[in-house]
């Protein structure tokens, strides 16, 4: 090149002459357009998804949708039974999964020896997080419904769902515990605290925002799950809200699925309205997670 043979002047001309760069610049610009397109595609997909659902379901959005029982006539059908089912199933799910999930995370992060066995336990948990949700349905059906004889009941659904979100809660709680600075543990141990006193009084309170945020995300997942409950015995059409642990039940996404799979346009629009309610519930949950995170982090900063 000229820079090799020529003097300082030809280097200066080289710097000013952008001809050899032109092809590279054009390629770079094309690439940038591709990047924008990909980002726009995802933002657009979410926008269209929410937009079309709103347009389809708008007509059926009213208080009646929430208070009406299911019906064979779309204008009279509502989500009352499904909403109750979701509240009860998810409530029980959290009751089972939260303490056990946090307990397992504490064991892995604070108590368990760092050996092969805990490594295997960790691998097992991360694999469980990847098992398709419908397989959890088969587990719930085989173990809780048939083997334990609990049948197609609310408690079967809740136990199934608890096992499904357990690995998610464990992994989130572990991350939160890992983020607690070791100096805090040392301070407590230095005062003669036992492992449990250290964990319960200092480590856990510091990890609470992370644990709660992770749990809420896991619960959001459970609220939107259809397949495992469909397999483990949620009903497709039910006229009564569940009254006890052994009641039949249905949940919000089951009801939406039921409406979606009917051929009439009216029921499909009703499904859209149901989806809007479901998304609103999930959005509410996420807002709560954000508020919790902010409030706690302010408190900890002191």
């Amino acid at each position: 090149m000229s820079a090799m043979s020529g003097g300082a002047d030809s280097v200066a001309t080289d710097l000013l002459d952008s001809t050899p760069m032109r092809g590279r610049v054009r390629r770079a610009r094309l690439f940038l357009i591709l990047l924008y397109a990909a980002a726009a595609f995802t933002v657009g997909a979410l926008g269209v998804l929410i937009g079309t659902t709103l347009i389809d379901g708008w007509r059926y959005l009213s208080l009646d949708l929430i208070t009406n029982l299911p019906s064979r006539r779309p204008e009279a059908a509502g989500l009352y039974v499904a909403l109750w089912g979701t509240v009860m199933v998810i409530g029980l799910t959290v009751l089972f999964a939260f303490p056990i999930g946090v307990g397992a995370a504490i064991y892995l992060e604070e108590y368990g020896p760092k050996n092969r066995l805990t490594k295997l336990l960790q691998l097992n948990i991360s694999n469980l997080a990847g098992v398709p949700s419908i397989v959890y349905g088969l587990l719930g059906l085989g173990i809780f419904a048939v083997w334990f004889g609990l049948g197609r009941s609310l408690i079967t659904g809740a136990l199934t769902m608890a096992l499904l979100i357990l690995p998610i809660i464990i992994i989130a709680a572990q991350e939160a515990l890992k983020a607690v600075p070791p100096s805090l543990r040392e301070a407590a141990y230095g005062l003669g605290a036992t492992k449990w006193q250290t964990t319960w009084h200092h480590v856990l309170p510091s990890a609470v925002p992370g644990i709660l945020t992770g749990t809420i995300l896991a619960v959001s997942r459970a609220i939107g799950e259809t397949a495992p409950l469909l397999v483990a015995g949620a009903s497709a059409f039910l006229l009564f809200k569940p009254t006890g642990l052994d009641s039949n039940y249905t949940v919000l996404p089951m009801q939406i699925y039921n409406w979606t799979s009917r051929p009439q346009q009216e029921f499909q629009d009703l499904a859209a309205a149901g989806i809007i309610v479901l998304l609103a519930v999930l959005l509410l949950m996420n807002s709560v997670a954000i508020i919790i995170r902010q409030r706690y982090s302010r408190k900890l900063r002191g």
Partner: peptide, 19 residues
């Protein structure tokens, strides 16, 4: 060791008060 530490206190390099 818990009983040992209750009798032999410790102050660390970086101040580490509880939050």
């Amino acid at each position: 060791p818990v009983i040992v530490r209750r009798n032999i206190g410790m102050v660390f390099q970086k101040p580490n008060p509880f939050p």
